[in-house]
């Protein structure tokens, strides 16, 4: 968290640079409605945390951002979602390219059952980002460095990825997401399978990554949301109850429901 974000005027809440904008988003799974008229702006180069009780719609919203809901049977998304002002759901959008641009890291580390090197090289190769082996090597190294993993694995890039610890595997998955030059990284409970030290390392990594990327993280740890994010949105029963500067949400939330949730009065 930058120091300036801690000292800004409490009332000031203007996004300087909106990366993703959601207006009036509804999501249905068959006839069950999961999201109701969600309006939310995601700021560029900022970590935005989505919090709320189970089933509140935060993961559903996250999956709208790279159209992961497209592959879920019976899921309908309506309303307006845009990335840099371009409609995410326009007919001409190449979903594969979109998912490279808006990468995703999941709850459980899910490396491919291949070498460490191949895990990172896979994306750039299929997206044609490297013209030579040397270039590919460079992408792999840079990605692993940005994920804070390179020094730990540089001497065993050909080892199988599953030989790494859970925390290392998760940082490898982050390196894999970075390798295809995304602009946005979505993280769905990225630390819930990790121990506290591995969690701290991923949190430090998230703090560094926001220099380059826009990050949206779903977490059911309110403490983690408070630690890693600059902005927080509280979801409840499929609605965004409140969103704003994280320090403000966690010291003086506007809505009673937010207060009740973060203080452990409703689940």
């Amino acid at each position: 968290m930058s120091l300036s974000s801690l000292t800004t005027d409490e009332d000031r809440d203007v996004l300087l640079d909106t990366k993703i904008q959601a207006v009036g988003v509804d999501v249905h799974y068959h006839d069950k409605q999961a999201l109701f008229q969600v309006d939310l702006d995601i700021a560029a180069n900022t970590v935005t945390a989505l919090i709320g009780p189970s089933g509140c719609g935060k993961s559903t919203f996250l999956r709208c951002l790279n159209r992961m809901n497209d592959i879920i049977d019976g899921c309908r998304v309506s309303g307006a979602l845009s990335l840099d002002g371009n409609d995410l759901y326009a007919r001409e959008v190449d979903v594969v390219a979109l998912r490279a641009k808006v990468g995703m890291v999941f709850q459980k580390p899910n490396p491919f059952p291949k070498s460490i090197y191949e895990n990172v090289a896979f994306g750039p190769r299929i997206h044609g980002l490297a013209d030579s082996r040397a270039e590919l090597d460079q992408i792999v190294e840079t990605s692993l460095r940005r994920a804070g993993l390179y020094t730990e694995v540089s001497d065993r890039l050909d080892d199988t990825a599953t030989s790494l610890s859970g925390g290392q595997q998760q940082r490898l998955c982050i390196a894999r997401a970075i390798a295809v030059e995304p602009e946005v990284i979505l993280m769905d409970e990225p630390c819930s399978a990790l121990d506290p030290i591995a969690t701290a390392k991923v949190e430090e990594l998230i703090d560094e990554l926001r220099q380059r990327y826009t990050i949206v993280i779903v977490t059911h740890s309110m403490q983690q949301a408070a630690r890693v994010s600059q902005r927080t949105a509280f979801f409840h029963l499929g609605e965004v109850v409140e969103d704003g500067e994280t320090a403000k949400i966690f010291t003086d939330p506007h809505d009673e429901r937010t207060q009740a949730y973060i203080t452990g009065r409703i689940g």
Binding site: M1, L6, T7, Q223, A226, R227, T246, A247, F250, T251
Partner: peptide, 15 residues
């Protein structure tokens, strides 16, 4: 006042 506000934020966000 600045220290007071800063401590409040540190307690809330850093646990």
């Amino acid at each position: 006042n600045e220290i007071h506000g800063f401590v409040l934020r540190l307690l809330a966000t850093r646990q």
